[in-house]
Simulated assay, not measured.
Amino acid sequence: MAREWVINGYNGYPGLVLQDCEPGTAGPGEVRLRIEAFALNWGDMDLMLDRYSFSFPKFPARIGMEATGIVDQVGPGVEGIIVGQRYCTLPYFYDNAGTSADFAVVDARYITPAPEGLSAVEAASVWMQYMTAFYPVIDISKAGPGTNILATAGTSTAGTAALQLGRMAGATMITTTRFAANEAYLRANGADHVIVTGDDTDIAAAIHAATDGVGAHLAFDPVGQGMIARYTPALAKGATIFFYGTLDGVFPQLPIVDMFQANATFHPYSLFNYVENPEALQRGLDFVYAALKAGQIAPQIDRVYPMDRYRAAWDYLSQPRESHGKVVVETGNAPG
């Protein structure tokens, strides 16, 4: 009998239950993975509270779609997938069939070979953060020298990825953090300017100072109501806000006057919409594989937990941390 972590309602991670389950069978267009490791993401927290880019069609429901595993079964009509090889899942609208389990049946369109030279834990810690940052920073905005980018919550994995990709593109990278102790980490990962956000910090003034009064051309923001109005007075003309999460738990009320004055666009952004577009998906895959191979990016792992301590992993992720990077669960399903 296999194991799975599920929730039975929108009551957050404290409602997670570890239970026995059947491994499942790959149907047409599907593959079955023997999961080796799966990563935690802040979006999963929002999903478990029903404030995400999709809702579960029914319960019980598994969580997450960022995992690494060995393909052990291929369904009818699937070609090019090698049984016995390690693959990574890619984030998509997975209904209630997530990867927080020993086995997962996944749409074959949304797996990709594990990058060479990475462990199972490392390979499970690549695609969500780097592809989340890739589309707004590189693919859509075409960031480069002269582009000023604000990545709020820079120590989040997607925020750190945005800093790294922006640095690769030559953009000026500005980030925020609640703790001054994070500044060295953020600068090492690509931040040109770090704003420590105390209650009295004038974030907009700091952005203007960092950009010689031009402002931010792009905001990459997962925070929510408590942040947006603090930086919108410093949006550059024609700026875009890519809003992709609610770390503070509250959807923002848009500061319309600031956005009128900057002719700014508010873009509610979900990576899943781009992954499910075949052409966009291929652009993202090509970019991330190439950047990994060139050594321009690399997964950063904070902590690894065993399968039976998934809730403890969420407890840890939910608290302020002194170290940063992915939090990952290993199932114990080593190849063999």
Rank of each mutant, 00 (worst) to 15 (best):
A191V: 00
D192K: 00
H193D: 04
I195A: 00
V196M: 05
V196F: 01
T197L: 10
T197M: 10
T197F: 06
G198V: 12
D199K: 13
D199E: 13
D199H: 13
D200Q: 12
D200N: 07
T201H: 05
T201V: 14
T201Y: 01
D202C: 04
D202I: 05
I203G: 06
I203K: 00
I203A: 06
I203F: 03
I203D: 14
I203M: 08
A204N: 08
A205F: 00
A205G: 09
A205Y: 02
A206R: 10
A206L: 03
I207V: 05
H208G: 13
H208L: 15
A209P: 14
A209G: 15
A209V: 13
A209C: 05
A210I: 10
A210W: 02
A210L: 07
A210R: 00
T211R: 01
T211V: 03
T211H: 04
D212R: 07
D212H: 12
D212P: 12
G213E: 07
V214F: 03
V214N: 08
V214I: 15
V214W: 07
V214S: 13
G215L: 07
G215N: 03
G215E: 09
G215S: 09
G215A: 00
A216R: 02
A216E: 04
A216Y: 04
A216F: 00
H217T: 10
H217R: 08
L218I: 15
L218N: 01
A219V: 14
F220V: 06
D221P: 09
D221N: 04
P222D: 10
V223G: 11
G224A: 01
G224M: 02
G226H: 06
G226Q: 12
G226K: 07
M227H: 04
M227L: 05
M227G: 11
M227P: 04
I228K: 05
A229R: 15
A229W: 14
R230W: 11
R230Y: 05
R230N: 13
Y231R: 02
Y231C: 03
Y231K: 06
T232H: 09
T232Q: 08
T232M: 09
T232V: 10
P233Y: 02
A234P: 15
A234C: 09
L235E: 01
L235K: 00
A236K: 02
A236F: 00
K237F: 11
K237S: 15
K237I: 15
G238S: 04
G238A: 06
G238Y: 04
G238W: 07
A239K: 06
T240V: 07
F242W: 05
F242L: 01
F243K: 05
Y244F: 10
Y244V: 04
G245Y: 02
D248P: 12
D248W: 04
D248K: 02
G249C: 08
G249I: 12
V250W: 02
F251T: 12
F251A: 15
P252R: 05
P252T: 11
Q253L: 14
Q253M: 13
Q253Y: 02
Q253V: 14
L254S: 13
P255C: 07
I256D: 11
I256G: 12
I256S: 03
D258L: 05
M259A: 04
M259R: 06
M259E: 11
F260W: 13
Q261A: 12
Q261K: 08
A262W: 09
N263S: 15
N263Y: 05
N263L: 11
A264D: 03
A264L: 09
T265L: 11
T265W: 07
T265S: 08
